[in-house]
């Protein structure tokens, strides 16, 4: 039994297939205006039904799914409805058997599959991204050397606006196969800053000043508590490390620069006001043979 026999289809030989397939002119000559009208009405009805279902899904699922996910889901539902209507009505309209339609469909899928591997790969990756939803519109992400705010997540690609306003279009399969960092996936995010002070400055005093700033700064979270501690003693300075948590959905945590601009100048000003200064790079040089430097005492006395 061949594969068609499995499905009890009535295509005994290729000649029958040929006889079933009439010429294009004959097909269209047999279609009445009424049948065309029913076909068009069917597609319009499927389109309207798709819109109604989409609306209900949006109303009922908006608190569970993100906007991008809803867009893709409703798009797929609308497309499936129209394909089903075409699949049901086209054989009758063109007077073709289901077998011919199936063969045609398989051939079209095979051609599309061979010629558009990349497109299909992107679509599959898009569906995977939809399911896993590692990010959504409005999130700030970093992927493959690109950082920016997600403008849209589509079936084939993701569009990102970088902090300098550049529009970047990334195919879904590229995103799916690489690392993605999402600044907004969690509700809070920790930032780390380093501040160097001079050796002669009071470390405890400097820590206290910075802690006070973090305590009074509205957007530094109370819990987890911020931390200030000596993280390194370098050749030129004592390095204080500052760790503080901020809400991820705050506008200044959209990118790292905005937050630095808001926090670091306050710390610098407060430390300087307390007489604690940022150190200059310095080196003490020792000579193996101490050179004799003549001192002009006469000019000094003048």
């Amino acid at each position: 039994m061949n594969i068609l026999g499995l499905f009890n289809l009535t295509v005994p030989s290729a000649t029958d297939v040929e006889s079933t397939v009439t010429s294009d002119n004959d097909i269209f000559a047999s279609i009445s205006p009424r049948e065309i009208l029913i076909f068009i009405v069917g597609i319009i009805a499927a389109y309207i039904l798709g819109l109604v279902i989409s609306h209900h899904i949006r109303v009922r699922m908006s608190h569970r799914l993100k906007k991008d996910q809803l867009d893709i889901l409703t798009g797929i539902i609308r497309a499936v409805l129209i394909i089903v209507v075409i699949g049901i009505s086209l054989p009758g309209l063109l007077d073709l058997s289901v077998t011919i339609i199936l063969i045609g469909l398989v051939a079209i899928i095979a051609i599309i599959g061979v010629s558009s591997q990349k497109v299909i790969s992107n679509m599959v990756a898009g569906l995977a991204l939809l399911y896993e939803s590692p990010f959504a519109t409005g999130d700030f992400i970093s992927t493959g050397g690109v950082s920016g705010t997600v403008v849209s997540v589509r079936l084939f690609s993701v569009r990102i606006r970088t902090t300098d306003g550049v529009y970047v279009h990334i195919p879904n399969d590229q995103i799916y196969s690489t690392t993605v960092s999402n600044n907004h996936a969690n509700v809070a995010r920790r930032y780390v800053y380093s501040v160097g002070i001079r050796y002669q400055d009071d470390v405890k005093k400097a820590e206290g000043i910075i802690e006070k700033i973090l305590e009074t700064y509205t957007f530094v979270l109370k819990n987890p508590a911020p931390a200030v501690f000596v993280s390194d003693i370098t050749a030129d300075s004592v390095v204080l490390m500052i760790r503080a948590w901020f809400p991820s959905n705050w506008k200044l945590t959209q990118d790292d620069i905005s937050l630095s601009i808001a926090i670091l100048p306050r710390i610098k000003d407060a430390l300087e006001a307390a007489g604690i200064e940022m150190p200059y790079a310095q080196r003490v040089i020792w000579f193996a043979n101490q050179p004799t430097i003549p001192i002009d005492t006469a000019s000094k006395q003048r």
Partner: peptide
Amino acid sequence: PVKFSLYGSPSSGVITRW
């Protein structure tokens, strides 16, 4: 005065007005 905090973990908690 306004201060924010985190109740729960960063992945499953909520930001609160503290």
